[in-house]
C-alpha cells in the first residue's frame, strides 16, 4: 500500500489556480521527486498533504487514512520557508523541535547529537543559531526534519544554500534513509540536482502534472535512438547513423531504427584510425525533458528560473 496517495487534488487561491487535478503516489523505500519550476504548485501540494491547506477538491490519503495530529510525529518536513529559534543554542533548539514530535528529551538529544556529528555540526552544538552560517543553518534545519526518525520525509528545496560538499552529505543521508525503508518526497526546481537520486517523479507545471512515472522509463522514452561519442581521429560516416552533430566537445549520433548502440560501439572499436575516449547512450536531462514537454504543450519555451512567487506567500 502506498504511504501517500494524492488523488485529483485541486486548490485555488482567489483568482489563482495553484494546483489543478494533481495525482501521485509515494511508496516506502523510494525517493519521489516532485519537480517543476518555481510557482508550479509543488509547495501547495505538499501543504495539502500535511493538512496545512485543505484541497478544494480531490482526496489525500496519508499512511492509510486522512491526515491527523498523531501522524504528524511520523512525518519529517523541511519547509521551503526555513526558520529556527535564532536566540537558542543549536542543540537546545533541535531537541525542542524533536520533543514536539513526541520524542522523549534524552532520546531526542541522543539523536540530535548523532546527526550533528554526521552533518559536521557537532562543534557548533552550543552556539546560538543566529551565529551559524547560512549553510550551517540549512543543515541544522535538515536535522530538525530527521531527528525524530520519521517514516515519511518531505524535503522542500533541500539543497538551497548548500555547497557541493554538503549537497553530497545530504544526498548520502537521503540514500541511507531510502535504504532503511523510509519514503522520501523531494520537491525542487533544481531538476539536474536530483535526477540521479529519484526513483520516480511527478513533473508539474502551472499547477498541473505533466509527467509521472519511473524516472528511468521517462528518460528512455525521451531518449530516442541516440548516442554520444568522443573520439580521437576523424569520425567520418558511420553505418546506421542518420545524423551527426557536435555537442559539448563530443558528437551526438542519431541512429536508424535497425541499428543498436552496441553495434555502433563495436564498429567504432574495430576501426584502427579511431581511439574511442567516451561512449554513452544519450539520455536526455530532466531539464531537457521538461522543456520539450512544456514546449509541446504550449508552443513556447518556459522560463525555468522565473522568480514566480510560490502560491500563497
Amino acid at each position: 500500500m502506498a504511504l501517500v496517495e494524492v488523488q485529483h487534488v485541486s486548490k485555488r487561491f482567489g483568482q489563482m489556480q495553484a494546483v489543478r487535478d494533481v495525482s501521485l503516489e509515494v511508496d516506502q523505500g523510494e525517493i519521489f521527486g516532485l519537480l517543476g519550476p518555481n510557482g508550479a504548485g509543488k509547495t501547495t501540494t505538499i501543504r495539502m498533504m500535511l493538512n496545512i491547506f485543505r484541497p478544494d477538491s480531490g482526496t489525500i490519503i496519508m499512511m492509510g487514512g486522512p491526515m491527523n495530529e498523531d501522524k504528524k510525529a511520523r512525518i519529517g518536513y523541511l519547509p521551503e520557508e526555513r526558520g529556527l529559534y535564532r536566540e537558542l543554542p543549536l542543540l537546545e533548539c533541535l531537541v525542542y523541535l524533536a520533543q514536539l514530535k513526541g520524542v522523549e528529551k534524552a532520546a531526542a538529544e541522543k539523536s540530535v547529537r548523532h546527526y550533528l556529528e554526521q552533518l559536521d555540526l557537532a562543534e557548533s552544538a552550543n552556539k546560538k543559531v543566529k551565529d551559524l552560517s547560512r549553510g550551517m543553518q540549512q543543515k541544522a534545519q535538515i536535522i530538525a526534519t530527521v531527528a525524530h526518525e520519521p517514516e515519511l520525509l518531505i524535503y522542500d528545496e533541500p539543497f538551497q544554500g548548500l555547497d557541493p560538499v554538503n549537497v553530497r552529505r545530504v544526498k548520502d543521508l537521503m540514500e541511507e534513509q531510502r535504504a532503511s525503508g523510509k519514503a522520501i518526497i523531494m520537491s525542487t526546481h533544481q531538476m539536474n540536482q536530483v535526477e540521479a537520486l529519484c526513483d520516480r517523479i511527478l513533473l508539474v507545471n502551472r499547477g498541473e502534472g505533466v509527467l509521472y512515472g519511473r524516472l528511468a522509463d521517462i528518460q528512455s522514452s525521451f531518449a530516442g535512438n541516440a548516442i554520444r561519442v568522443q573520439v580521437e581521429g576523424e569520425l567520418g560516416p558511420v553505418p546506421g547513423v542518420l545524423a551527426m552533430h557536435p555537442e559539448n566537445g563530443a558528437q551526438r549520433l542519431t541512429l536508424d531504427e535497425h541499428t543498436s548502440p552496441q553495434a555502433v560501439l563495436a564498429s567504432l572499436c574495430g576501426r584502427p584510425d579511431l581511439k574511442v575516449l567516451g561512449f554513452e547512450v544519450a539520455t536526455p536531462s530532466l531539464d531537457d525533458i521538461f522543456i520539450s514537454v512544456v514546449t509541446d504543450a504550449s508552443g513556447e519555451v518556459p522560463d525555468l528560473h522565473a522568480a514566480a512567487q510560490e502560491a500563497i506567500t
Partner: peptide
C-alpha cells in the same frame, strides 16, 4: 518572523 511556524504546525496542533 522566525519562520518556525510551518515546522510547529506540522508537529503539534
Amino acid at each position: 518572523e522566525s519562520r518556525t511556524m510551518e515546522i510547529l504546525v506540522t508537529s503539534i496542533s
